[in-house]
């Protein structure tokens, strides 16, 4: 028996919004430590890794490890049927071929349940090595979303250059070129507005704007985003999900032909 309850549907709606542009379907691996989803986009350029810890759910029961393949478009449609302040309970029997989403209004007067067929997904699981990144940038997530949107107008790809002075985002194409430089915040009044750079070695990498823009769909989940970079390895874009866990996007760099 699997049962996980959140007092508020909003967070689950935001999580679905953050993945459904990249992934059509995904396998939710449930264990007593929580829920994990790892999946690549169709073109195998990026990887989404979602971790939700069991102790942060309002109720969590997982008697046996369970892998539930879900159509994320359908799941998003179902979650749209919940009001933001509804309690959400996800339930499945062991070895079941369906999962049930139950929504309960705050006054307990409306209870709805939606059953969804599970899918058998033959998905590759990738082992992500522990990496000490040369540069780790923390910055406001809205600012990152804005930069990705603005620079995508100029080119399909964006260069991210991180030095101890700051981080520079650049794009150039037929229309012209764009550069946005962010210096490390000297005076941090509000932590969520800070730009913080931890640099061991400077890094310059090139990434596809399309994927970066897809990652920024997670912006409503967290005020800050963390970018981790090292030469010749995928970028990690991480959004924390309050005390529930995190969503990490890995993006393969563009390389010289």
């Amino acid at each position: 028996m699997f049962e996980a309850r959140l007092m508020n549907a909003t967070i689950l709606k935001k999580i679905l919004d953050a993945v459904k542009d990249l992934l059509n379907e995904g396998t939710f691996d449930c264990s007593d430590s929580g829920i994990q989803l790892q999946a690549m986009d169709n073109s195998h350029v990026s990887l989404v890794s979602l971790t939700l810890r069991s102790d942060s759910f309002d109720k969590f029961r997982c008697d046996r490890n369970l892998s539930m393949g879900m159509n994320l478009g359908t799941m998003a449609k179902i979650l749209k049927c919940a009001n933001n302040d509804d309690t959400v309970t996800i339930k499945a029997q062991d070895n079941a071929d369906t999962v049930t989403f139950m929504f309960e209004s705050q006054n307990h007067e409306k209870v709805s349940d939606y059953e969804m067929k599970l899918m058998n997904l033959d998905q590759e699981h990738l082992g992500i090595p522990d990496t000490d990144y040369s540069c780790v940038v923390r910055m406001p997530s809205m600012e990152f979303a804005r930069i990705c949107r603005d620079l995508a107008q100029f080119s399909e790809s964006m260069v991210i250059c991180c030095t101890k002075e700051g981080v520079k985002f650049s794009a150039s194409g037929d229309l012209g070129s764009a550069n946005v430089k962010l210096a490390q915040t000297s005076n941090v009044d509000k932590e969520e507005e800070a730009v913080i750079i931890e640099m061991q070695e400077p890094v310059t990498l090139t990434f596809a704007c399309r994927y970066l823009n897809a990652f920024t769909k997670a912006t409503p989940l967290c005020n800050q985003v963390q970018l981790s970079m090292s030469a010749d390895v995928p970028l990690v874009v991480e959004y924390r999900i309050s005390d529930l866990g995190h969503i990490r996007y890995y993006l393969a760099p563009k390389i010289e032909e």
């Binding site: 195998h44 990887l47 590759e124 990738l126 563009k254």
Partner: peptide
């Protein structure tokens, strides 16, 4: 520039 694949960095488990 060419787009590399994520599978060339992370091994299949």
């Amino acid at each position: 520039m060419a787009q590399s694949s994520i599978t060339s960095y992370f091994s299949t488990r």
